[in-house]
């Protein structure tokens, strides 16, 4: 059986490696490995201004984590802690709308989930600590809350609504890692279906009119719990089978 082709949105970012300091199209390998481990073939979709035509060649797409979405997209002034990636916004907001219109299976991870909300008319909380009065959704700068040996800091439970796609994937509860300082306020065309029970921060959204458009606020690609990637691969395989039938 052929592997479904899964697009991963990527950074155009100034990076350093070895003696190099360059502008690169890039993405952490954790996303690539998560796609390959769940039976897909990953390709990176770099930010690209003219169009969304690349959608036609994919069986599924992951909108990956990254910097903040510019609050100008929901008509709000910028919070001092907000650090947007305008290049990715300009590419990914139209790409998200095109992927939804095409019925392409979509997984949104962290920023990717936030792009889902904003692309469909929703909005974000720009700085979660202002809202909930604690920092448990992220860790201090320079530490890695997503490492396998991370402490409880940046790690919490999620409760999932029954009779949803998310419930089929995750069951009633799960424990997740966490590294974000923004969160979905209004989910746009999406529906919130999972929450952090401590503070009601939205952790999962899905699109009610779409076979598979699931957004998660945490980072499954940095864990051994790849159920969200498996679900995407299954949906992408079905799309492929339908398309070639």
């Amino acid at each position: 059986m052929r592997r479904p082709l899964i697009g991963l949105t990527a950074y155009a970012q100034q990076v350093k490696y070895g003696h190099n300091d360059m502008m690169a199209g890039m993405l952490p390998m954790t996303y690539v490995k998560a796609v390959h481990a769940t039976g897909g073939r990953a390709v990176l979709i770099t930010p690209d201004d003219p169009g969304t035509d690349v959608i036609e060649s994919l069986d599924g797409i992951v909108f990956t984590g990254g910097n903040d979405v510019d609050p100008a997209h929901w008509d709000e002034p910028r919070h001092p802690e907000t650090d947007p990636d305008e290049t990715r916004d300009e590419a990914e907001l139209p790409l998200m709308r095109a992927a939804l219109a095409a019925g392409l299976p979509i997984l949104g991870v962290c920023r990717g989930m936030q792009v889902m909300a904003v692309a469909t008319g929703g909005s974000l909380h720009q700085h979660v600590p202002d809202l909930v009065g604690h920092e448990r959704h992220r860790a201090s700068t320079g530490t890695d809350p997503l490492a396998a040996n991370a402490s409880d800091y940046g790690r919490h439970d999620v409760v999932v609504e029954e009779r949803t796609v998310a419930h089929e994937v995750f069951g009633r509860t799960l424990t997740v890692n966490s590294f974000h300082h923004q969160a979905v306020a209004e989910p746009g065309e999406f529906v919130p279906v999972g929450w952090c029970p401590d503070d009601r921060i939205i952790e999962i959204i899905e699109h009610p009119a779409h076979t598979f458009a699931l957004g998660v606020q945490w980072h499954p690609e940095r864990t051994t719990d790849l159920r969200s990637f498996e679900a995407l691969a299954r949906a992408a395989s079905r799309t492929r089978a339908t398309a070639s039938a």
Binding site: A12, V15, A24, G25, L44, D48, P50, D53
Partner: peptide, 27 residues
């Protein structure tokens, strides 16, 4: 952080020439 990357020059060169670049991590 282990990352897959290619200099932005490549994607820009393809884009400016009228193509749509996608990056292929080794597999």
């Amino acid at each position: 952080l282990p990352s897959t990357l290619v200099p932005h020059d490549y994607t820009e060169a393809v884009r400016l020439a009228g193509g749509r670049p996608v990056l292929l991590p080794p597999d």
